[in-house]
């Protein structure tokens, strides 16, 4: 099986970062022929300084920090997987790094995308659509009333 890649690595990592621990754990528990994994760094929790831009598009400034957890894992087959995600969930960071490593294997990429990443991406997109629809319902529709008819 050598399906075409549906996502870039960045896209895959972005989906992994926003998925829930439960989804990742279920996917990993159900994964047959798990490769050995060796933690090279972390999972460790720290902070990223978040920057904004003056006026929205000008010079950068430091807005404030956010909790971040990251992990680096080497698979038994040699791939090195990374994760860096908002929050303090070390187990989620470890699993996200493992899946990033697995995604790099031609033999596993198609399966990870079809079984895990694309369904997750669709759920996230659906949640965004709901927010947009809820927000759209609060859009103001102006209509003009003619007053003080002097003609």
């Amino acid at each position: 099986m050598n399906r075409e890649t549906a996502m870039t690595r960045q896209e895959a990592m972005a989906v992994l970062a926003r998925s829930s621990l439960e989804k990742l754990r279920a996917a990993w528990d159900g994964w047959d022929s798990k490769p050995a994994t060796e933690l090279l760094r972390g999972p460790e929790t720290g902070m990223i300084m978040i920057r904004g831009r003056t006026g929205g598009s000008g010079a950068p400034f430091n807005l404030g920090e956010a909790s971040v957890t990251r992990a680096t894992v080497r698979l038994g087959t040699g791939e090195v997987g990374f994760s860096c995600i908002l929050g303090r969930d070390t187990e989620k960071a470890r699993l996200a790094a493992i899946f990033d490593g697995l995604w790099q294997r031609d033999g596993d990429r198609g399966r990870i995308e079809q079984d895990l990443l694309l369904p997750l991406a669709e759920r996230l997109a659906a949640a965004d659509r709901t927010v947009r629809a809820q927000t759209a319902a609060t859009q103001v529709n102006f209509f003009t009333m003619v007053r003080g008819d002097d003609e």
Partner: peptide
């Protein structure tokens, strides 16, 4: 290189 990842504390 993968070497850079190993050898930490």
């Amino acid at each position: 290189s993968s070497l850079s990842y190993s050898g930490g504390f």
